[in-house]
Amino acid sequence: MAKTILIVDDSASMRQVVGIALKGAGYEVIEASDGKDALSKLNGVKIHLIVSDINMPVMDGITFVKEVKKLDHYKFTPIIMLTTEMEQEKKLAAKEAGAKAWVTKPFQPPILLAAIAKLVLP
């Protein structure tokens, strides 16, 4: 059965590029345009991994990760931050919030897929 991955990014084109890479590797994809939208989609749906941007309107990525970690059903769901940010402070904030990996945009699909493969349980 295909694993389901939630993509959270305010850029539709980025969601699409990530979606293409993930669908090509056999994953099922759910999309959300910001942190709040993503939380509304974590409604009992089985999610194996989350790929989230940081700079988003309404609710940014770090806040979103913190909110996810408060949810009993999803607190152990691995989260990858996919962002243009390169500041160490932001990386540290993401790590402290509970993110498992950090991938810098623009990304090479094999790198993202390698990170996902390492974090998603078989």
Binding site: N55, E85, M86, K91, K100, A101, V103, T104, Q108
Partner: peptide, 20 residues
């Protein structure tokens, strides 16, 4: 500055992926 960040060429490949 925060949104333009570094160009791809200037980026170190080690920055592409970091596991926490």
């Amino acid at each position: 500055k925060s949104v333009s960040a570094q160009s791809i060429c200037e980026r170190d490949s080690a920055d592409d992926l970091t596991f926490f």
